[in-house]
Design a protein around this nucleic acid. Structure first.
Lengths: 159, 159
DNA sequence: CAAGATTGATAGATCAATCTTA
DNA sequence: TAAGATTGATCTATCAATCTTG
C-alpha cells in the first residue's frame, strides 16, 4: 500500500528541503551582519509594517506567519526587550493583546528591507521563468490549504 | 536603485516561507509521534541509508543535507547517544570521520519511511500538475547553484 | 597554514502546563 | 469550558574558538 515518490517528486522534494535550509541560513546571516536582525525578526516586522496602524493581535500575527503560539510569544519578549515592538492591551477583549511596531522597529525594517529584498530577488527570482514562479505560488497555496485541513479549506472556498 | 518584488514574486515568496514553516512543523510532529524521530534525524538517516555500505564522511553528509558543520556535529552526538549512528575513524585520512548507520538506525528509517513518505505525498504532491512539480525542482536547482556562488557553479557546468 | 571535524557558550524553538477573561 | 496568550523546562541551532592531521 506504500508508494514511494517518483523521481521527479523526489528531486523536487530534496531540492525544496536543501534550498530552504541554505536560503534561510544565507538570508539570516546577511540580515544579522548588515542590520542586526534575524530572518524571524524581519518576518515579524514586515507583517506589522503592513498592518493598519502598524499593529495586529497576536493571533493575527500567528496566522500571517504560520508560527506556533509559544514561539511567537517568546520571540516577542526578545523583540520587545530590544525595543522593536511593544505590547498593548486590547480594550475590547481583556484576554487579547496587540503587538505594535515601535518607532525603532519601523526604522529597523525600513533600513533592512532594501538590501534584504535585493538578496531575495538576486538569489531566488531574477531570471526565473514567470511560469516557474507562478507554479511555486500555486503549489504553496495548495499545500497550505491541505495543511489547514478540510474544514478550513471548505471555509475558504465554500460550495 | 532598490526594486521591490512583483506581486507574483511576493506571493510565491510568502507562500514558500509559510509552506516550509508549517510543513516542517507538521512532518516533525508526525515523525516524532509515530516513530520518535525528528525530521532532522530522518534526513540524516535517509542520506546514510542510500550511501554505499550505509556510511559517509561527515563532509559528504554536510553536502547532501546543506547543513552547517557544527549543526551536524552536535546532531550526530545526539543520534549516536540514541544508537542510531556510529562514528568510524577514516583509515586513509587521520582527520576524517565516517558516519555509519547502525542496525538500530537502519531499522528506524525502514520503519518510519512508509508513513513519512505517505505524508509528504499526501500533503505536497498528490494531484499536483506535473509541470508545477518540475518547476519546483528546476527553481530549487537554480537557487542552489546561486547559493554555491559563481565558482562552484562554474565547476559544475564548465564552459 | 588549510582541511576536517568537534566543542562550549549562547540564542532560538518546542512541548506541556498555566493563567486570565469571554 | 474554551479562547487568547504567556511561561518554564528542555531540546535544538548557531557562532566563535579550538583541536588534530595533511
Amino acid at each position: 500500500m506504500t508508494e514511494w515518490l517518483t523521481d521527479e517528486q523526489q528531486e523536487a522534494w530534496r531540492g525544496l528541503l536543501q534550498m530552504t535550509t541554505r536560503l534561510n541560513a544565507r538570508l539570516n546571516r546577511h540580515l544579522q551582519d548588515e542590520h542586526g536582525l534575524s530572518l524571524a525578526d524581519y518576518e515579524v516586522l514586515v507583517v506589522l509594517s503592513e498592518a493598519p496602524e502598524n499593529r495586529l493581535r497576536v493571533f493575527e500575527l500567528i496566522d500571517e506567519l504560520g508560527w506556533e503560539q509559544s514561539r511567537l510569544s517568546h520571540h516577542l519578549v526578545r523583540m520587545q526587550r530590544r525595543g522593536l515592538v511593544e505590547r498593548i492591551e486590547c480594550p475590547t477583549d481583556g484576554r487579547g493583546t496587540f503587538v505594535a511596531l515601535t518607532r525603532r522597529g519601523l526604522a529597523a525594517i525600513e533600513a533592512a528591507a532594501p538590501s534584504h529584498v535585493d538578496a531575495v530577488r538576486t538569489l531566488v527570482f531574477d531570471d526565473q521563468p514567470a511560469d516557474q514562479v507562478a507554479a511555486l505560488a500555486a503549489l504553496s497555496a495548495t499545500v497550505l490549504d491541505r495543511l489547514d485541513g478540510p474544514r478550513a479549506a471548505a471555509a475558504r472556498s465554500p460550495a
